Amino acid sequence: DETGKELVLVLYDYQEKSPREVTIKKGDILTLLNSTNKDWWKIEVNDRQGFVPAAYLKKLD
């Protein structure tokens, strides 16, 4: 059920640097789980959840 889920576009590649982070690729469109922290957003990638720098993402309307 995708209702109410926010999507984000990945602006730059990011390689995870800790187990709490996930790797993302430029151009991916992913589900945003939590954006309350202005610097690190929690997203879902391939059934994995983790954090990436918010500056690497853009919210889609």
Score class of each variant (00 low, 15 high):
D1T: 15
D1I: 15
E2I: 14
E2P: 14
E2V: 14
T3Q: 14
T3A: 13
T3V: 11
T3L: 14
G4I: 14
K5N: 10
E6P: 12
L7K: 14
V8W: 06
V8F: 05
L9P: 00
L9M: 09
L9W: 06
V10T: 05
V10M: 01
V10R: 00
V10L: 01
L11T: 04
L11E: 04
L11Y: 02
L11C: 06
Y12V: 11
D13T: 06
D13M: 03
D13W: 03
D13G: 06
Y14V: 01
Y14F: 06
Y14G: 00
E16R: 09
E16N: 06
K17I: 07
K17F: 06
K17L: 08
K17H: 08
K17G: 07
K17T: 13
S18P: 04
S18V: 05
S18F: 07
P19M: 08
P19R: 07
P19Q: 10
R20C: 12
R20Y: 15
R20I: 14
E21T: 06
V22N: 02
T23S: 14
T23H: 04
T23K: 04
I24H: 01
I24C: 08
K25A: 09
K25E: 07
K25Y: 13
K26L: 05
G27N: 06
G27H: 06
G27F: 04
D28T: 11
I29W: 04
I29V: 10
I29L: 07
I29C: 05
I29E: 03
I29R: 05
L30M: 05
T31D: 05
T31P: 14
L32Y: 01
L32E: 00
L32R: 01
L32H: 01
L32C: 09
L32V: 07
L33R: 04
L33P: 00
L33G: 01
L33M: 07
N34Y: 06
N34R: 06
N34G: 06
N34P: 02
S35R: 08
S35P: 07
T36F: 09
T36K: 12
T36A: 13
T36Q: 12
T36R: 11
T36N: 12
N37F: 08
N37H: 12
K38Q: 13
D39T: 15
D39W: 14
W40C: 06
W40Y: 08
W41N: 01
W41E: 00
W41A: 03
K42R: 09
I43R: 00
I43E: 00
E44C: 09
E44L: 10
V45M: 09
V45K: 14
V45N: 10
V45D: 08
N46F: 10
N46K: 13
N46W: 08
N46I: 09
D47N: 14
D47V: 06
D47L: 10
R48A: 06
R48W: 08
Q49M: 09
Q49G: 05
Q49V: 14
G50N: 02
G50K: 02
G50S: 04
G50V: 08
F51G: 01
V52W: 00
V52C: 05
V52K: 00
V52R: 01
V52E: 01
P53W: 03
P53I: 02
A54S: 14
A54G: 05
A54Q: 07
A54W: 02
A55R: 14
A55L: 11
A55P: 09
A55F: 09
Y56E: 01
L57P: 01
L57M: 04
L57Q: 00
L57I: 06
K58G: 05
K59H: 07
K59A: 06
K59C: 05
L60K: 04
L60W: 07
L60A: 05
D61L: 12
D61A: 13
D61M: 14
D61N: 15
D61P: 12
